[in-house]
Design a protein around this nucleic acid. Structure first.
Lengths: 344, 344
DNA sequence: TTGTAGGCGTTATCAG
DNA sequence: CTGATAACGCCTACAA
């Protein structure tokens, strides 16, 4: 039941400075030092100064395990990413990390990185119950993942990175995916494309599904129903494969909405292989505005998703739940925007 | 001195199960339960079973803050990555995470992700002293980073991901970079290349420097001194830019060693732009064997660096230091190998 | 082998 | 406003 490493425990000889010691030096009680440390207002100004001097001369830092024991806060949250095969090389996750730690780190809250495996669910639940974690941010959970529900039922602080496939009462942060799809449609049509296709993401996941839905209904609204549609799975490879199928089956296409920049990055070289110039022969619009959009040749016109902001919002929503149990569920939807570069 | 969030602390109503309670139910003392939980051998078999039953019926899980308070272990280590601009889209870091958490996660040790900023150094040192962190893995520290030295002087567990620029007594895990450069040289020469060039990484960092050194001295040994050399900085963009300069200044090159797959990924399209076929006109060898090598067109022949294994080793070395202070410094060097695909 | 009791370093309650 | 004093939950000599 316990780590075997434990046996060989060897004492570390750091002479820790304790509240006790600071108190002795300042000539006050531990309680007073604690008040100063925690910035409690009701402390006499001169005493506060004395204590602060004692703190800085001793280099005192509070032991967080002891504090955690009584406050019941770990000051740590987990970021759970999908199993790592998919995350390799996808800039999306780096942006998530950046956004999340942007709000966590100034607050001194640790970001514990986990990747899903057979037992991450149990692990996370255990960590929460053991007081090592205050809450969880779940990124791209798969459709049948029982973890979100489990956490909700356990009334544990949790935030999802996107609308869950099945409607459960949980806080999530998302971009307006359908609006994003519509932006792409409007741009392609405005550009004069008449044979329009789309390479979708995984359709069993809400983002993939919604981007497609938004794209198609906007195309219909704009007088071009019957969009050609090839399915990918958000990876670069799938983008290339999908484009190969598309261009073979429908050599006449003159505009493609590709549901992620990463897929677009895979698809563009395929267009070139087949002698198509972008955007002259085929206009291409991506989705994400990730760093991949800039590595594309030509630079990708794409639907921007403010991932860093969204991630920051996830962190804030989570902390809110941590601070106050039973915070009402309030999901936040960001609006996408179109970033016009050279591919369309 | 303290997070302001503290004030609004609201009690969380999880009825925690404590040792005390399990003990009462099992009809033994707390000490005995503790022994069972920690797998101490000297516990009567029947009592152990009774206790285990009590544990499972109550769903007891030890409070780790309390444990940490007495064991002085946080069971958490930090992974410090370079500031995020560079890490975006570089598969190297995902591989590091995978390798590290592969050994940490089964042991229940948390991986706390940090990215370098102005005060990460202070943050890390404080976390260590506050007992929130047991050790630190530093990935790609910049040359003048004072943190490694600071940690060494403080006798804190720390491992670097590569040989430090300045020789300090610190444990690091690295690949034999010069041997890697040599592998590339040998392959290009064996292939019959006569006008060989290299696009280097950042030369102020040991990996960049050593790969170049290994490559050049091997070329000289093989009878082709005077290698053409263009400097990059390990990013995809720099790879493209370097190749542009190279092909313009030396249109006669027929073989290039590019010091990272990511740079190669940027460089290959440039070769194509200039009408060069790979490998027929120009043979290209990369370095890393990252996922980028496979996304290249054609798939990249490259010097493989076993990053996952190296990362796992970093974790193990770190834990060793955590378990036993003053573990002798013992760096581990992995051997590279050549993965032959289609670019050379 | 088991139980008793003290301590780990903080925060929090409640007199003074 | 300040100081005792009691938790917080667990580990660990030491004694039985």
């Amino acid at each position: 039941m316990r780590s075997y490493r434990y046996k060989e425990l060897v004492p570390r000889h750091q002479k820790r400075v304790t509240l006790e010691e600071v108190a002795r030096i300042a000539g006050v009680s531990r309680a007073t030092v604690s008040r100063v440390v925690n910035g409690v207002a009701s402390v006499d100004e001169s005493i506060r100064r004395t204590v602060e001097k004692a703190i800085s001369t001793t280099g005192y830092l509070p032991n967080l395990a002891a504090r955690s024991l009584v406050t019941r806060r770990a000051d740590a949250v987990a970021l759970v990413l999908p199993s790592e095969d998919r995350i390799v090389g996808d800039p999306f996750f780096t942006r998530i990390v950046r956004g999340v730690s942007g709000v966590l780190s100034p607050l001194g809250v640790h970001l514990v990185l986990m990747t899903t495996s057979a037992d991450t669910g149990d692990q996370v639940v255990a960590d929460l119950r053991q007081g090592r974690l205050d809450g969880v941010i779940l990124v791209h959970t798969y459709r049948a993942d029982p973890l979100p529900n489990r956490l909700v039922r356990g009334r544990q602080p949790v935030v999802l990175s996107a609308r869950p496939a099945d409607p459960i009462p949980i806080t999530y942060v998302d971009v307006n995916q359908t609006a994003g799809g519509a932006l792409a449609a409007e741009h392609l049509v405005a550009r004069g494309c008449h044979r329009v296709a789309t390479i979708t993401g995984s359709l069993d996941r809400p983002p993939g599904h919604d981007r497609l839905a938004g794209f198609c209904s906007a195309m219909a609204r704009l007088g071009q129903p019957g969009v050609i549609c090839v399915e990918g799975d958000f990876t670069r490879q799938s983008g290339a494969a999908a484009m190969r199928r598309l261009i073979t089956a429908h050599p006449e296409v003159d505009g493609v909405f590709i549901a992620s920049d990463l897929m677009a990055e895979g698809a563009l070289p395929v267009l070139r292989e087949h002698g198509r110039r972008v955007p002259d022969d085929v206009a291409v619009v991506g989705f994400d505005d990730s760093s991949a959009a800039l590595s594309c040749d030509p630079p990708l016109t794409t639907v921007r998703q403010p991932v860093e902001d969204m991630a920051a919002e996830m962190a804030r929503q989570l902390l809110k739940q941590v601070d106050q149990i039973d915070t009402p569920i309030r999901s936040v939807i960001f609006e996408p925007s179109l970033v016009i570069r050279q591919s369309a």
